[in-house]
Write a protein that binds this DNA or RNA. Sequence first.
DNA 1: CGAACTTTTGATATCACTCAAGGGACGTGG
DNA 2: CCACGTCCCTTGAGTGATATCAAAAGTTCG
Lengths: 258, 258
Amino acid sequence: MPGIEAASPLRLVHPAAGIGNPFVRKLEDSTALSVADRVMLERISAEPRIVMPHTDLVREGDKPNGVFLIMEGIACRQKMRANGQRQIMAYLLPGDLCDLDVALLDRMDHTITTFSACKVVRLAPETVADILEHHPAVARALRMSTLVDEATLREWLMNVGCRSALERVAHLFCELLVRLQAVGLATDDSYELPLTQVDLGDTTGLSNVHVNRTLQEMRRQGLVELRGKRLRILNLPRLRTIAEFKPNYLHLGERAAA
Amino acid sequence: MPGIEAASPLRLVHPAAGIGNPFVRKLEDSTALSVADRVMLERISAEPRIVMPHTDLVREGDKPNGVFLIMEGIACRQKMRANGQRQIMAYLLPGDLCDLDVALLDRMDHTITTFSACKVVRLAPETVADILEHHPAVARALRMSTLVDEATLREWLMNVGCRSALERVAHLFCELLVRLQAVGLATDDSYELPLTQVDLGDTTGLSNVHVNRTLQEMRRQGLVELRGKRLRILNLPRLRTIAEFKPNYLHLGERAAA
DNA sequence: CGAACTTTTGATATCACTCAAGGGACGTGG
DNA sequence: CCACGTCCCTTGAGTGATATCAAAAGTTCG
């Protein structure tokens, strides 16, 4: 089946191929993809669905109904407590594929919600199975990306478990810079951040009020500038030092290790 | 190759088969294993290595050198900060297999250390690859178990991010009860817990002093009894309520859902 | 232009941390 | 079997970081 697609030159010269498609771009970072791989990836991600902001893609307790691929926008994994407290457990950025093996589970144990308007693709379990079986390079890259998701989760636990408010927010900002740069969505020092201070608080285990004061402190120290929904990092070296940010857990190439 | 093994009846009547082997026991919870599967599992876990307490199995920065299977004892994943602070990010209990796909990574991003004396088996990447290819039922169970590990990590983040000291410790104790029961290492209401209060603090993001005071409060309320290294839960319903413990994230069968 | 949301501010409260020291428990070696 | 060291648990006092509450000011958007 991939052979048929590969015979179609139209796909290969599509202007956005490999640049506009964050999924392809991300996978290519970790593995060399064949033409057939790339064609297949372009094909499955060709018709994204547009989802409004603050919409649940899957809810805790639902039966998993396939795997989501984020093409545009930002979403998150989250869980609520009975008293209304919320913990955000991951950000899903363009190029991220949620839960490769989720079909093995009976019920979702958390909710996936969009922050901003998103373009997402839902892949049926059979599609995923097909990729895993017939596209080993892609499968490898996806497995790798799952490992990175888990490592990121560990780093978040580290963040909330043993860093101060300033350090936590600094760390989050450093991580997002690297991850967004990897899919071409950040400049050298800035990116769009469609989150409220409440969201940041629910991410870092802080109250919104304290996030606010922490951001003020960061501005005062000339670390960042946060206007509208755009974050600009003014002093990256110092921000990294404060956060003790070591991007090794993101397992990027040598490129970003510096 | 499995066929040859299956022809050997000796393995099948091994007295400890499926009972003494926590790995087999755990996998059988999620999938029906064939005789060949079980034989293979018994074979690869036949000769565990004994590791002293407080020994690193792999260190952050090391090249991953295979996958560890915990047969006995308790170990953990952890990371240190430059200032000496430690965050524990997972407990590895008997029957747990660490990092199915870890061979894809260049470097470890965290350290795995034993708490108590452990029996562990190291599986070479080829062994793992062989299982994934030739034992689909086992592969499924292992993938599933990886999903549970990740879900557990999310729950820990929830714990540290939005629960009080009492709630955090209560939640941890509830989780351990269920997980240890699943491998036959806990009674109805008690289990061995070879951890110090410092360890508990590094797990829950609390200081050792505060863990101490929290444990005293739990004793005062008649929730638990912690003598020597044995934890006995005196009022499980209340402990669960306090922790808001919902074991759904462990994705056990109906059995433990109650 | 108004409603709803988000950010900001001030005042107060509290949970948990730090520091420091005393008391057990346990193991080892004399 | 006792003496000692070490590790762990416990206690007290004082502090500090962050939470809570409530209201004002700013923003966004229909």
